[in-house]
Design a binder for these strands. Structure first.
Length: 488
RNA sequence: GCUCCUAUGGUCUAGUGGUUAGGACGCGGCCCUUUCAAGGCUAAAACCCGGGUUCGAGUCCCGGUAGGAGCACCA
């Protein structure tokens, strides 16, 4: 992986990055990663991470969704140093509250000639898209209006937009930390709208003004902005501002190559958590989509990511989101939890009516067998109700269990159990082990029919004695007796 | 259509001219074992194609191909 040396990054002392979502109501996986990387880049350098709300599209704002952004970040453990509710002296941090600022700066560009008023209505622009011939390097006729003509239109009361004047001809280059040197011809750049007729800025304008005014040093955003970055650089240049460093990120896609989309039912970050994935596992997984630490570590908690993260190790190509791997990593995170912590987290996932069991004990049993919290009800369901099962279950070659041995074992073990005073896993195990020895049977041959009678399933979280301990003496006896009935 | 970007097993990736191309997920097998997991070991599986440059190319250059992105009074 060849890396270019950035022009002046060594002189950057204070890192300031921002996450600038538009309020759509939930956190995309891609957004989560963008926020995470921006956070890691800032924090890894001891810098500042800022949250800014980009709500300049009046048609797309979803009320309450700013709250969703707060919740999403909180869930991820990503804490911002400055934001709408956390003033750091660079506010306001909500673009709809900065309208006068954009106007002021737009007018500066009008004065300097780097932008111009445009009086066309939206509908006037020919829709050439339909013919397959795309417009590029759009130059509006208003570009050449004289001062008098502009004044006259203004007096008429036509609400203008302000468009950027792209220097024509020309070529622009910039350095991106992920993609390297990018060069684009100005004939590819539109005279884009900077200020809409409703007085709101476009993203194209607001991001530049805000990033500069908020002293953002490293712009972290999706790859989709790569080709419009020269337009922003031209703006920086027109204002005489220093450009930030750029870190454009490749996209996260699906395994079939299509893009993740909420509309097609692909889960958001919050959805994944609801689906039983630990937030820290999702964060860990997403960090690994497009980045690696340079060694073979894969398990990371947020603080470790801060330490390990290096923007020079971000990949250029899109990465497919794999539920298989997320599931595995989720299991890793689950297993890394202390038994107490796991128990706490898992408590809400137990089906109703489970309080009658020793849940703490049950939790230790299932911790190593849980890859997703949502699997728990199915995993433990048999404790509450014994499923109906076929006699055939009692046959198990690997344990050398046959119908005969199973029946024999259950018959002999029943009175043994009845006589037991201490009902614990250890006491039960000792008892059965001694029993198997005295009968000259394999431990497995003894355990299998018991485990089967107790669970009614081919597999279970825990062996015979562990299940018995949780089930309790009475229920164990009942199920063993039932097993004998089934064996006939 | 024009422009920009990308290309190592099915998936995530390591790899900065010389490696038996490494790891992880998933998949198969074995061991361990109180069933299943977990853990350990192990197998199968990859450098998009074609030209160059070079003693030598996954690695550099060019050209294809394939995929992604951009081309809004959306962000």
């Amino acid at each position: 992986m060849v890396r270019f040396t950035p022009s002046n990054s060594s002189e950057v002392t204070m890192f300031r990055t921002r996450f600038a979502p538009s309020p759509t109501g939930y956190m995309h996986i891609g957004n989560l990663r963008t926020a995470l990387y921006a956070y890691l880049i800032a924090k890894g350098a001891g810098g500042t991470f800022i949250l800014r709300i980009e709500d300049t599209d009046q048609n797309r704002n979803v009320p309450e969704s700013v709250q969703a952004i707060y919740n999403g970040l909180k869930l991820a453990g990503i804490e911002y140093d400055e934001g709408p509710d956390k003033d750091g002296g660079y506010g306001p941090y909500v673009q709809s509250q900065r309208l006068p600022i954009y106007k002021e700066y737009a007018l500066k560009l009008i004065e300097s000639g780097d932008a111009y008023y445009c009086f066309d209505q939206k509908e006037d622009k020919p829709a050439l898209e339909d013919t397959g011939e795309r417009v590029q390097g759009y130059r509006d006729p208003c570009r050449n209006l004289s001062a008098e003509e502009v004044r006259a239109k203004l007096v008429e009361g036509i609400k203008p937009v302000i468009r950027q004047r792209i220097p024509d001809p020309g070529v622009s280059s910039f350095f991106d930390h992920v993609y390297g040197e990018i060069t684009i011809d100005h004939d590819q750049l539109d005279d884009q709208v900077l200020l809409k007729s409703d007085g709101f800025p476009t993203y194209n304008f607001a991001n530049v003004v805000d990033d500069h005014l908020m002293a953002i040093t490293h712009v972290v955003r999706g790859q989709e902005y790569l080709t419009s970055t020269p337009k922003y650089n031209l703006l920086y240049q027109a204002f005489g501002w220093e450009r930030p460093e750029y870190i454009h990120l490749p996209h996260i896609i699906k395994e079939d190559g299509s893009k993740l989309s909420k509309r097609k039912g692909d889960p958001s970050f919050e959805d994944l958590v609801r689906m039983g994935y630990l937030p820290e596992a999702v964060v860990n997984y997403v960090a690994l989509l497009g980045w690696n630490p340079g060694d073979e570590r894969e398990f990371f908690l947020l603080p470790n990511l801060v330490e390990a993260f290096d923007l020079n190790r971000i990949n250029k190509s899109n990465a497919a989101f794999s539920f298989d791997k997320l599931r595995w990593l989720n299991g890793e995170h689950i297993r890394s939890l202390s038994p107490q912590e796991f128990h706490k987290r898992v408590l809400p996932f137990y089906p109703a009516g489970f309080d009658r069991f020793d849940l703490e004990q049950l939790s230790t049993l299932i911790q190593v067998r849980t890859e997703n919290l949502a699997d728990i009800p199915a995993l433990v369901g048999f404790f509450a109700e014994l499923p109906s099962y076929e006699v055939g279950l009692f046959e198990h070659p690997k344990s050398k269990s046959t119908m005969e041995t199973s029946k024999l074992v259950l018959q002999l073990v029943l009175p043994l159990f009845e006589a037991m005073e201490e009902w614990t896993n250890d006491s039960l195990f000792d008892c059965l082990k001694a029993f198997s020895k005295e009968q000259g049977l394999k431990v497995g041959t003894v355990m299998w029919p018991i485990r089967t009678a107790l669970s009614g399933q081919e597999t279970s979280p825990g062996g015979a004695t562990e299940l018995a301990a949780i089930l309790g003496k009475e229920e164990t006896l009942r199920r063993v007796a039932l097993g004998l009935e089934i064996l006939g």
